[in-house]
C-alpha cells in the first residue's frame, strides 16, 4: 500500500495490514476458484468430453467438495472479522489522550479549522482559525471535533487512512497522530453539492518549530487585521 500512497499517521499501518491480509486471503480463494473454473471449462469442453456425467450433488460424497472448501472460507472469514474489528476499535472506538484538540467544520464548500493557539488550548482567545488549511505537528496526538454547517461532508485524509463523515447537528470526535512531515491533501468524500469537486483542503504536517513560527505569524496577522479594522471604524 505505501507504494501507492504514503502513510502519515500512526494507524495507517494497521489499515494497510488489514488490506494486505484480506488481499492475501481473498486473493487466494479468488485465484483458486477462477483456476478451477477455467480448468473445468477447458477440461470438460465438448470436444474433450462428449458425454456428460450424471452427478446430483446431493450425496455426501460429492457434497464434501463443496463443504470442505467452504469451511476453510469460514476460517478465513473469522480471521478477517477479528482483524477488522481490532483495527476499527483502535481507530474509531478508542480515544488516546490528546496533546491538542482541533475543531473541523465542513460547509458548502470549504473546510474550516480552528487550531489551538500558542497556549495549546482550544476555546481561548488566541485560537487560530483557517479555511482549507490544517496545520499539525508531527508525532503529536490530535483529537478533532467534527461538525457540519449545512449538508453531509466527509473529512478524509488519504495519507492518514482517515475518514469520517461530518453530519449537521452532530459533533463527532476522532483522533489521529501524524508521523511524517509534509504537505498532503484533505478531501471531502461525501457529495455535498455543486462545489463538491473543489472542496479540497491542504494538510501541513510540521515540526514543532515550524508550527510555532506559523502560529506566531498567524497571531501577527490577526493583530494587524484587528488594528486595520479598528482604524477603519
Amino acid at each position: 500500500m505505501e507504494y501507492i500512497i504514503e502513510r502519515a499517521s500512526s494507524f495507517a499501518g494497521d489499515i494497510d495490514f488489514l488490506i494486505v491480509l484480506i488481499a492475501v486471503l481473498g486473493g487466494f480463494w479468488l485465484l483458486l476458484a477462477e483456476a478451477v473454473l477455467f480448468y473445468f471449462i477447458v477440461k470438460y469442453r465438448r470436444k474433450a468430453s462428449p458425454k456428460a456425467q450424471y452427478i446430483t450433488g446431493e450425496e455426501e460424497v460429492s457434497k464434501k467438495w463443496l463443504h470442505w472448501p467452504h469451511y476453510a472460507v469460514i476460517v478465513c472469514d473469522l480471521f478477517i472479522i477479528f482483524f477488522a474489528i481490532q483495527t476499527w476499535v483502535k481507530i474509531k472506538q478508542t480515544l488516546p489522550k490528546p496533546d491538542a484538540v482541533i475543531e473541523v467544520v465542513g460547509q458548502q464548500w470549504a473546510w474550516k479549522f480552528t487550531h489551538p493557539g500558542l497556549d495549546g488550548k482550544l476555546g481561548t482567545k488566541d485560537d487560530v482559525k483557517t479555511v482549507d488549511e490544517l496545520h499539525v505537528v508531527v508525532n503529536k496526538t490530535y483529537q478533532f471535533k467534527l461538525k457540519s454547517d449545512d449538508v453531509l461532508h466527509s473529512f478524509s485524509i488519504p495519507v492518514f487512512r482517515l475518514k469520517q463523515d461530518a453530519v449537521p447537528g452532530r459533533t463527532i470526535t476522532g483522533w489521529f497522530k501524524p508521523t511524517k512531515t509534509g504537505q498532503f491533501d484533505i478531501q471531502c468524500a461525501e457529495i455535498c453539492g455543486i462545489g463538491h469537486g473543489i472542496m479540497g483542503a491542504k494538510l501541513y504536517i510540521e515540526t514543532e518549530e515550524e508550527h510555532r513560527t506559523w502560529l506566531e505569524h498567524q497571531r501577527m496577522a490577526q493583530v494587524n487585521g484587528n488594528r486595520i479594522n479598528t482604524a477603519k471604524k
Binding site: Q93, L95, V167, G169, R170, T171, I172, T173, G174
Partner: peptide, 9 residues
Amino acid sequence: GQHWEKQVI
C-alpha cells in the same frame, strides 16, 4: 453515543 453527540432541538 460513543464519541458523538447531537443537539436535540
